[in-house]
Design a protein around this nucleic acid. Structure first.
Length: 648
RNA sequence: GCCGAUGUAGCUCAGUUGGUCAGAGCAGCUGAUUUGUAAUCAGCAGGUCGGGGGUUCGAAUCCCUCCAUCGGCUCCA
């Protein structure tokens, strides 16, 4: 007999060789039906794998990540089986469970192309296979056997994977006619997989390497209940309604023009209004934190970026130099603002007493992103960074870094961004070629970030190696869009390299020259990306202080149209933007209902209101706020905006 | 850049196997209506069917090519 310890601490005795499924059955039949995988001493196991010693276990159901993982991983194998039957000779890459479903990378051979239209066929085959209730069987194999098996099959992808594994750690899983190299765990059999949907198809380089073959990646999702699939698909549909590209057009915030060029957004009046409100908000915050605004041109001599090191690294893949009538003269559209700001720092000798110098600019930059990378407003070729560079003494670095963290957290809080991830991006220790600067400088910069983050008590921060900028490590703030894709917004980067390259200095208390440290930072990241994510987070219902049109004026008949115009003009003086409902408006547009719903205030005017120089105020979703004269309303609204900002 | 898909009026979409297939709704314009809030009525106007080539007696429909967009991959200063 062996002792099995449950998560709640209770211990029960079982026969040696008992399986997770046996244990679940011993507790209740319904549990046995719902359980999908098991943790044995914190290792993920199959339910059917025998337990031969005392162990602490946890049974994983659908609700547990580990349960879902096994479910989707098994679904991936099932899909592979279906594909192998439909496309004999297909070779398989990897097929993992992912956050929302699973995929498998397959190589059906050079003459075979799998397209969207084939997905239903594969789906159907999978469902057939499910009904066979094949079990997933684990088998430990030697490296030699494993290599031989896939060599016979001619699957070079699997043999490549196996050759990197250590003998004695290799296992196969079989279900039906399909055998895969796999660590597991898997479901006991296919029967729980009740609902399957293959979602999309994409090319994916083998092992993520651009120089290697591109396999066909098939994405799918599966569920234990048909209803759950329906709900999942419904959720995806809902998310599409919040897509910033759709709302951006509907709300008339921004557009693109093929004639202007891909990735070059055109901000429409309302979008520009929204953006301006955001910029003003940030300017106010920055003023309070000792930042000084600067303005620099959109181009600069190529030499600037040769000095910074950017040209050597990105020159070929950038917008190419601008030539002038002067032979040999070359300018670049600026892909970043740092060199310009460095030159501003150098404008005059700096004393240690002057530091930190914080130079801020909404700087528009141009980067030639790969065509396939462009994405609405989140990835564009011309965008405006809410950029600033802080030049400080080494002893001020940690404190300055922490202050920037405060600003970013404040802004995220203000805009109600709760679901963000913070990530420390360090260099890849294996690949020093990718980075400029000395090891010593990198050490210092990385240590500074780690210390600042620690001092801030940021616990959930993730450390990623190889994600650093080529000139320095950074702390990134990452937010998800409507469809769950991650986008980096705020960023803070520590840089010892540019100060060196630009020979920045200050005179210390010892009357000697010293080199300042530079912090690059952008709380929004870029106005474009930030607005995109903001649109998706708010579904186009912006907070009052940001919303482009804060009130809609409704004259109940044409007679009051002139008065409506007057009200609108009056409120403009208070920075309150209004729309006039067009039903009674001879010239003008009728406001669509869904648009009207997004405007927070409704001002109704009729005879009574016109005579008394007032408006009847309604707040969307809250009802009547009473009759107010125009000054009162302006004050009321401004008050609301203030209190909204203060309550943050 | 790579893989797959898509591209018909400002927007959302119909257009079966190539032969009145250039259509509808919304938006727009012109009249009428004057309404205290999820679509007032009538009429008009809108498109080299993404661009260019080709096949055909005939192409929105088939083929080639370029462009843009979408889903991914790679990239992301």
């Amino acid at each position: 007999m062996i002792n099995i310890t449950f998560p709640d601490g209770t211990i029960r005795e079982y026969e040696e060789g008992v399986s997770g499924l046996d244990i679940a059955r011993s507790l209740s039949n319904s549990l046995a039906r719902m359980v999908l995988s098991i943790n044995v001493n914190d290792e993920l196991w199959d339910l059917t794998r025998p337990i031969n010693q005392d162990a602490a276990i946890k049974l994983n159901k659908w609700e547990d990540e580990e349960g879902k993982h096994a479910f989707w991983h098994s679904s991936a194998h099932l899909m592979a089986e279906a594909i192998e039957l439909l496309y004999p000779g297909t070779k398989f890459g990897i097929g993992p469970a992912i956050e929302n479903g699973f995929y498998y990378d397959v190589d059906p051979g050079d003459d075979v192309v799998i397209t969207d239209g084939d997905l239903p066929k594969i789906e159907k085959k999978m469902k057939e296979l499910v009904s066979q209730k094949n079990s997933y069987q684990r088998e430990e194999v030697s490296k030699e056997e494993a290599l031989k098996f896939f060599d016979n099959k001619g699957d070079q992808y699997k043999t490549e994977l196996i050759s990197e594994l250590e003998d004695g750690t290799i296992s196969f899983y079989r279900q039906g006619s399909f055998t895969d190299l796999c660590r597991g765990p898997h479901l006991a059999d296919t029967s729980p997989i009740k609902a399957i949907k293959l979602l999309s198809l994409a090319g994916a380089y083998w092992r993520g390497d651009e120089t290697r073959k591109q396999l066909t990646r098939i994405y799918g999702v599966s569920f234990p209940k048909a209803k759950m699939l329906e709900e999942h698909l419904e959720l995806l549909e809902q998310a599409k309604l919040r897509d910033h590209r759709k709302l951006g057009r509907e709300l008339e915030l921004f557009t693109f023009s093929q004639r202007v060029g891909p990735g070059l957004p055109l901000w429409l009046p309302k979008g520009a209004e929204l953006r301006e409100r955001l910029e003003n908000f940030l300017k106010k915050v920055q003023r309070a934190h000792g930042y000084e605004p600067v303005i620099t041109p959109h181009i600069g001599q190529k030499e600037l970026w040769e000095t910074s090191g950017h040209y050597a690294k990105y020159g070929k893949d950038s917008f190419q130099p601008i030539n002038t009538p002067q032979e040999g003269e070359e300018f670049l559209l600026k892909p970043m603002n740092c060199p310009h700001h460095c030159e501003i720092y150098k404008f005059k000798p700096r004393s240690y007493r002057d530091l930190p110098v914080r130079l801020a600019e909404f700087g528009t930059v141009y980067r030639y992103e790969q065509s396939g990378e462009l994405h609405g407003l989140t990835r564009v070729r011309g965008f405006t960074q809410d950029d600033a560079h802080i030049f400080c003494r080494p002893d001020q670095l940690k404190d300055e870094f922490m202050k920037v963290i405060d600003i970013i957290l404040y802004i995220f809080k203000t805009l109600d961004f709760k679901d963000f991830v913070t990530q420390i991006s360090l260099r890849d220790p294996e690949d020093s070629e990718k980075y400029i600067g000395t090891d010593e400088n990198w050490e210092k910069a990385e240590t500074a970030i780690l210390e600042a983050v620690k001092a801030k008590g940021m616990e959930s921060v993730v450390v990623e190696y190889g994600e650093a900028a080529f000139y320095g490590p950074k702390l990134d703030f990452i937010v998800r869009d409507a469809l769950g894709r991650k986008w980096q917004l705020g960023t803070i980067q520590v840089d010892y390299n540019l100060p060196e390259r630009f020979e920045l200095e200050y005179i210390g208390a010892d009357n000697q020259k010293h080199q300042p440290v530079m912090i690059h930072r952008a709380p929004f990241g870029s106005m474009e990306r930030f607005v995109a994510v903001l649109i998706e987070h708010t579904a186009g219902k912006f907070p009052l202080w940001l919303t482009p049109d804060q009130a809609v004026i409704l004259p109940i008949s044409e007679k009051y149209h002139d008065y409506a115009e007057k009200v609108s003009e009056f409120l403009k003086n208070y920075d309150i933007r209004t729309l006039i409902d067009g039903r009674s408006e001879k010239i003008g547009k009728k406001i669509r209902d869904n648009e009207l719903k997004r405007i927070p205030y409704l001002l109704i005017i009729g005879e009574k209101e016109q005579e008394s120089n007032t408006v009847s105020v309604r707040r969307q979703g809250e009802g009547d706020k009473g009759v107010m004269n125009l000054e009162e309303f302006a004050a009321f609204l401004q008050n609301e905006v203030e209190s909204q900002l203060e309550s943050i």
